[in-house]
């Protein structure tokens, strides 16, 4: 039987989750924070189970975080880094899914540069799949770890004013975050030049600002997004210099936010591009290192729930179904 508090086979995105399910995952993650801070960091809850990290895009921190989470739960972990340079990506992806499925893993943690690719793969396997980031679509474990960080610092999510600033157009982190925060009753603002604001994003419930000072006014949380260098050479933004001048977070702009506003960044940071080093390293206000710690705890919670649901799924389902 699946976990009644989280009856999903996969975690492909925040979209579709309700606040009870999100809270359930966050509560479970809380317990793992305690475990991780103790001397004995290992549990045996997933002993004998197999977790595969399947990454079609370079990643160090997310992959390491998933790997560590799986190991601390006592699972066997395999890391697969797959080159995506092949012309027929779709075919490769489905072939890979079928191959992996035959090895009976319990959970796949998948990252892919194309939006929707993780769902395509999930449709073809019998195990649980957690989305480790797909294109510009979703990155649900990042949103969960951000929510956990905020909840621990502020005691709640409901009613907070969160400003998400930067390249919202290309950011899966931004999408998952505002979907989660809105579901939990927070107010979300996005701040960016109009070239980096997705069309009709206001219809999804966020408030749109193009002026950083106005957008940061009275914010409880300031969430900065990474801006890719190749987007800073005239296509979306004229230059790094101009971007930092208008949209880089420094102490001056930060004065608009609440005095105890928390600063977050999903990493890796471009110091001097979207965030000033002084702000990033401000121990009083920056939660950037804490976000990394919460990442492991959240991924432990997600892997535990999905592995358990996967076991029930395999038992319930007809044997030998390959899902092609």
């Amino acid at each position: 039987m699946r976990d009644p508090s989280f009856p999903h086979r996969h975690l492909l995105g925040i979209e579709g989750l309700n606040s009870a399910e999100i809270n359930y995952l966050l509560d479970l993650s809380e317990r793992y924070v305690d475990l991780n801070r103790g001397a004995q960091k290992t549990s045996t809850i997933l002993s004998g189970r197999t977790i595969v990290n399947l990454f079609f895009e370079n990643s160090t921190r997310t992959r390491t975080s998933f790997e560590l989470a799986a190991k601390r739960l006592g699972a066997n972990v395999i890391n697969m880094q797959v080159e995506t340079s092949s012309v027929s990506k779709g075919e490769t992806l489905i072939d890979t899914a079928v191959t992996l499925n035959a090895m009976h893993p319990d959970v796949l943690a998948v990252r892919h540069p194309d939006s929707g690719a993780v769902k395509l793969l999930a449709d073809k396997v019998n195990c649980g799949v957690v989305n480790g980031g797909d294109g510009s679509h979703e990155h649900p474990t990042q949103a969960l770890l951000d929510a956990l960080t905020i909840r621990r610092r502020k005691g709640k999510l409901n009613g907070l004013l969160v400003a998400i600033c930067g390249d919202v157009l290309h950011s899966r982190v931004a999408r998952s975050n505002f979907l989660l925060l809105l579901t939990m009753g927070a107010r979300v603002r996005i701040i960016a030049p109009r070239t980096l604001i997705p069309s009709n994003v206001d219809r999804m419930g966020v408030e749109v600002f193009t002026d950083m000072a106005a957008g940061l006014k009275d914010a409880d949380i300031v969430m900065m997004l990474r801006v890719q260098n190749e987007r800073m050479r005239g296509s979306f933004i004229p230059s790094i210099r101009e971007y930092f001048h208008f949209f880089g977070l420094d102490h001056e702009k930060l004065k608009q936010a609440k005095p105890d506003a928390l600063i977050m960044h999903p990493g890796p940071m471009n110091r001097g591009v979207e965030i000033d080093s002084d702000v990033a390293d401000d121990v009083e206000r920056s939660a950037i290192r804490e976000q990394v710690e919460m990442g492991v705890a959240v991924r432990m919670a997600v892997l535990e729930v999905l592995a358990k649901n996967s076991m029930s799924h395999n038992a319930d389902d007809t044997l030998g179904r390959t899902g092609t």
Binding site: R233, G234, S235, F236, P238, R241, E242
Partner: peptide, 8 residues
């Protein structure tokens, strides 16, 4: 081709 530094 590429935007000039219009803000500055």
């Amino acid at each position: 081709k590429e935007l000039a530094e219009m803000g500055l």
